[in-house]
Every structure is written in structure tokens, then in C-alpha cells.
Simulated assay, not measured.
Amino acid sequence: MSLNLGNWQLDTVNGGMFRLDGGVMFGVVPQQIWKHVAIPDSKNRIQCANHCVLARDGSHTVLVDTGYGGKYALLDRKFYDMEPGEPLLEGLAQLGVLPEAVDCVVFSHLHFDHVGGSMRQDAAKRLSLTFPNAQHVVGRIEWENASSCLPELVTAYSSQEVISLRELTRLRLVEDGEEIVPGLAARLTGGHTEGHLSFMFRSNGQTACYPGDICPSTYHLRRMWHLSYDVLPLETRRNKPRLLAEAADDGWWMLWNHDPTAVVSRVNRDEKREFVAVDSSKTL
């Protein structure tokens, strides 16, 4: 998918398809309901995309999230049915973009499927930066939680990746509303994690929003449909409808992260279903 938004060219790049338990993806929604929109396999897993976004404006080459990368062990890859190799780098190569050309990597949050592709691992298990010339941008609250070593968060974040981001990158911490580069701003949405960010691309009166995991797909447009991983579900239920209402009223494009069929959509208000996706660009 390629979307021209004023000065921005936005391209979706595959960060690696995978499967995740349906109960994880839909939280309190019963399987008897969610199975009608996402068909589970024999292990109760549903297909999830991992759409990263490559954004270019002639001055900057920005990558939003990095997928899970190629360094996970075989058991992990089997558990999540991850794609082999390094899908993100393969996708960038198809667009003619070398890793060295990316000058800014921004993370919605630091879970494995969003940050894993930021590092590569050699045969001796030594880590190196996938994007060696890029500034790496994380929300301040997200970074504080990920690096806190709090016992209740220890399984949410990889200490190896957090340490590597600290030691190997030009790390920049940003606040709610801060402009990262001209025409790209961070928006604190919380919910999924306390410091979860969405990203707003704006140019020539147009807006495209990457909501990240506060609304990971067109299946999650209803207030109560959200991931069981959300650490602050009440925030998700408050902030997601606010974001979607702005998108509907102002005609934003929404860049879905985990939707296995829709890459980008607009959204409309709907009396029965709260919001619906329209004008979707499909994948697969």
C-alpha cells in the first residue's frame, strides 16, 4: 500500500505475519462473537498482520515500528507461527530502501512485535542495530516503564532489547504532542501500555493516523473490543472512541497495524456499531 499525503509518501511494509491466541486479541469479547470476524485455527490462534509504515517526505525517511525481526528462537517462531527470515528488510528492499537510509525509527510501544526488528543477531548472538544511522524515538513514559524492571512488567518487555536500545542507539524520548520531524507528531493514548503512542502524519490539510495497538485493526472499532494485554483497559475504552471520533469527523486515514486484510481505511460513525471502516485498501 502506498498513500500520498501532501509531502508524505506512506508505504506499508510487512513486519512479519504471525498468529496470536484469539482470546488475547479480543479480551472480554466471547469467542462465540469474535469467531465470526476472525476465524481461529486448531490452536485457537488468529492471523495477525504486522504492518510497519515507511514514511518519506524528501528530507526524512521514517520507519514506524519494526515488527518482530529475525532473531527469535525456533520455539518462539513456531509458537507464534512467525514468518522465516527478516520480512521487514525484505519489504524495504522491495521499495528500494536500504536499512542505512532510515534516519528515524519511532516506536508506538516496546512489545516484541513492535521493537524486535530494530536489532539483528549474529551467529555468536551479538546484537547490532538494524538501522545504524537512525535516531530511535520512544515515548518517555513507555521508556520509563520498559526499563523499570518492575516485576509486574517483566514479561511485557525484553530486557535484552531495552538494554540494547539504551547502549546502541541515539535514543530520543518524547512527550505527548511533541513533533518528531516536521509533519509527524506523537500522541499519548495509553491504554495498551501506560505510555503507548499513536502517530499523526499531517500535510496540506490532510491527516493519517497510525493508532498502534489502542486500535490494532478494523475488528477493534467498538469500545469493548480490545486486547487482553491492555494494562489500562479503561483508558483504552475512553481514549479509543475519542481518537476514532476525530478520525471520522475530520476524514483521517487510519493505518492499521495488525489487521490481516485491511491496510488503511477511513472510518465513519455508525449508530449500531459505533464506528465502521470505509474506503479500505486491502492486502493479502
Rank of each mutant, 00 (worst) to 15 (best):
S128Y: 07
D113F: 05
R273G: 05
N44G: 01
G6C: 12
P260L: 12
M25T: 12
R19I: 06
E246I: 07
L129K: 02
L63N: 06
A277S: 09
L232N: 09
V106K: 05
V181A: 08
S281A: 12
W34L: 06
V276C: 02
E144W: 00
L74H: 10
Q94H: 06
T189M: 15
T189W: 09
T261L: 11
K71C: 06
L168C: 02
L153R: 08
R45K: 12
M25L: 15
R19C: 10
M119N: 03
P182G: 10
G205K: 04
F107V: 08
G190Q: 06
P99T: 07
A277G: 13
G23R: 05
A93S: 13
L3P: 00
N50E: 05
V267I: 09
F275M: 01
V102G: 12
F18R: 03
D103S: 09
T155Y: 04
A248G: 15
A38I: 01
V106H: 13
E167A: 06
P30A: 14
L127D: 00
W34Q: 13
N239W: 03
H258R: 14
P30Q: 14
L243R: 05
S198W: 00
D113Y: 03
E100G: 11
D113M: 11
G70V: 08
L184M: 11
V162F: 04
Q31P: 00
F26K: 03
W225L: 15
G190R: 06
G16W: 06
T61F: 07
L89K: 03
V29N: 01
Q206C: 13
S203I: 04
V267Q: 00
A245H: 15
G16T: 12
Y210M: 12
E178Y: 01
V138L: 00
M200A: 14
L88F: 12
G139L: 07
N268S: 11
N204E: 13
H109Y: 13
N257S: 13
P87N: 08
N7R: 15
V263I: 08
Q206V: 07
P87H: 07
L98Y: 07
V276R: 03
T193E: 15
S228F: 08
F112K: 12
R77D: 05
E90Y: 01
S159H: 10
T189E: 15
L284I: 11
S280Y: 11
L129N: 09
E90I: 05
F79V: 10
A38F: 05
A134H: 03
L63W: 11
V263A: 08
W253N: 12
D230M: 02
R242V: 14
G67D: 14
P84K: 08
E194T: 02
Q160K: 14
G6P: 02
K240E: 03
E274V: 04
L165A: 08
V106C: 15
G6T: 10
R166E: 10
V278H: 09
C52M: 11
S164C: 05
